Amino acid sequence: MASADQVPFDDRGLAYGDGVFETVLLRDGKPVLWPYHRARLHQGCRVLGIELPADAELDACLDGPADGLEVLKIIFTRGSGGRGYAMPDAPRPRLLHRRTAFAPAVERWSGVDVCLCTLRLARQPTLAGIKHLNRLENVLARREWQRADIAEGLLADTRGNVVEATAMNVFWREAGAWWTPTLDACGVAGTLRAALLEQGRVQEALLGAETLIESSAVEQLFVGNSVQGLWPVRSLLTPSGEPLRRFAEAAGAWLQADAHALLGYPSLSGEN
């Protein structure tokens, strides 16, 4: 496998988004939810047809002094070369990684406001779930709001189904159970989401954007990921800040407690 401190001009990840990445929470040097991150990276490589990284190479990304909370970002591209979109004859995948100190936005564990973005995600089942390097939809969606009081933006697909937030997955409570959108056509299958699904704490279902706005059956809403934990949503707004609806208090819900236990974060007291 090839590696470099700087990405060369002909790297296919830079030119075409031809690769995958992971963002991993490290606690005293130990990766949180590491089996899920490794599995998603491997799945992304299989979908894209990139040679899987050796376990020793991935483990080497974890080497370094262990000190408190950090975030490890791993980028794995097909490497350099190829004429246009054509694959190089003998690609040498490139592995890049960096660790940075981190502190979660603890103040958002008690509640946030989010907006519903106007951008709609394209449906492409082949790429659904994997964390590939082409995130232009998320970049454009993030441009839609500038207000400091909006913490995240929700994204629906071209059929009007809520899929995810720009950098987080979505969870909602309905009929006494917790749900997360089905990701069979687009969206990133987060590692915290995967762990909660495996434990049976959440189930998958479709959630229409109109239902989210209009139906009182959707009682509570969360956004979250494996780095920040779960943020309960107080209000849903337009990108300009106009109110769409409010949700019932969700800070301290058992779903947040379960998620934070997986990440090693404290939970807020709340429902049982």
Rank of each mutant, 00 (worst) to 15 (best):
L244P: 12
A15E: 13
A128D: 08
A156S: 10
W178H: 07
R147C: 09
K30C: 08
G200M: 13
A54L: 14
R246G: 15
P243K: 03
R94S: 11
D11F: 12
G129H: 06
G68V: 10
Q6K: 02
V139K: 05
S110L: 12
E198K: 08
T211N: 03
T158P: 05
L206W: 13
S215Q: 14
D63G: 05
P88E: 09
C186D: 04
V233K: 07
R83Y: 04
E214D: 11
L244F: 04
E152L: 08
G19F: 01
D157N: 15
P243Y: 10
D5F: 12
L230E: 02
G111C: 06
R234K: 13
S80H: 08
W178D: 03
G19W: 04
R159N: 13
L154T: 05
F222W: 14
A195H: 07
P91W: 05
C115T: 01
N138W: 14
L136A: 05
A189D: 12
A251M: 00
V139N: 02
E144P: 02
R46T: 13
R147G: 09
S110E: 13
A248R: 14
I150Y: 10
H97C: 15
A101R: 15
R12T: 01
V188N: 07
H260Q: 01
A56T: 14
F247A: 14
V233N: 07
S3H: 12
V227F: 02
